Simulated assay, not measured.
Amino acid sequence: MKAVVLAAGKGTRLRPLTEDKPKVMVEVDGKPLLTHSFEQLIDLGVDELIVVVGYRKQDVIDHYDDEFDGVPITYTHQREQNGLAHALLTAEEHIEDDFMLMLGDNIFRANLEDVVKRQREERTDAAFLVEEVPWDEASRYGVCDTNDYGEIVEVIEKPDDPPSNLVMTGFYTFSPAIFHAAKLVQPSDRGEYEISDAIDLLLQSGRTIDAIRLDGWRIDVGYPEDRDRAEERLQDAEPDAPESTPT
């Protein structure tokens, strides 16, 4: 399975960390955000990384060149920052079958493999991790509205008045049907083509959508304090170095 990694953003909210680099090149625990994404995806068995670049794209290309840990990298260019669905469409010509999608500014230590397994076994049109966040943070994300049975009936991008605190995280799997849906998306109130609107179109057309509860943790590195929090979590998870034995 191929993986598309969205890495075109400026990271204006991460300033001053992004004064001289794109968002995905901000270091967390000694390596760029994008390296964390690549490592997670390679652990999931991807055979090609398709990286959507934009702002300061050459910084990314110069750093990684055409492969990472033996896995080939193909770059596509999002010329204008018009939203995640718009970014995804730049990768369409490189996708023939089911694929993974990861936002390059998220760090996961979670059950990503459950999403991939569901996609491979059930052949869904979309599967993604969801988690409950504090209500005052829900408006930062794509929010899932559910019915009385807990089934997702609508996905809404960054609503002012969230109907729930169940939100999509930055990891998905899709069938190629997502590209047709992305082409039908209209600009949101923010003027962007939202990936949540594309997923909602799949949902409303009766396509198979699966949401899987996050088991573990993930941090969306949107602000400097998020970077610090992610670094602390990663360092806490690292095993202590063994004590040296006197000789």
Results as ranks from 00 to 15, higher is better:
residue 44 L to W: 03
residue 169 T to Q: 09
residue 52 V to T: 10
residue 238 E to K: 15
residue 69 D to Q: 15
residue 10 K to E: 13
residue 41 L to W: 03
residue 36 H to T: 01
residue 30 G to E: 11
residue 107 I to G: 01
residue 147 N to S: 13
residue 157 E to W: 01
residue 88 L to N: 06
residue 63 H to R: 15
residue 118 R to W: 03
residue 209 I to N: 06
residue 202 L to G: 02
residue 173 T to M: 08
residue 167 V to N: 03
residue 217 W to R: 13
residue 148 D to L: 14
residue 153 V to R: 14
residue 150 G to R: 09
residue 97 D to N: 12
residue 39 E to R: 13
residue 234 L to P: 02
residue 191 G to M: 11
residue 231 E to F: 03
residue 103 L to S: 03
residue 178 I to Y: 02
residue 170 G to Q: 00
residue 43 D to P: 00
residue 191 G to S: 11
residue 168 M to C: 13
residue 117 K to Q: 15
residue 188 S to H: 11
residue 216 G to R: 07
residue 75 Y to H: 11
residue 215 D to P: 03
residue 4 V to R: 01
residue 240 D to L: 14
residue 40 Q to N: 15
residue 18 T to Y: 03
residue 104 G to Q: 01
residue 215 D to C: 10
residue 211 A to S: 13
residue 216 G to K: 06
residue 33 L to M: 10
residue 174 F to D: 07
residue 114 D to A: 11
residue 127 A to F: 00
residue 49 L to S: 09
residue 108 F to Q: 04
residue 5 V to W: 05
residue 25 M to R: 06
residue 105 D to T: 06
residue 140 R to A: 13
residue 213 R to D: 15
residue 61 I to W: 02
residue 194 E to N: 11
residue 184 L to C: 13
residue 185 V to E: 06
residue 173 T to A: 04
residue 199 I to V: 15
residue 84 L to N: 05
residue 60 V to F: 03
residue 45 G to S: 10
residue 3 A to G: 10
residue 138 A to H: 10
residue 169 T to S: 12
residue 182 A to G: 08
residue 3 A to N: 02
residue 5 V to F: 07
residue 169 T to W: 06
residue 140 R to D: 11
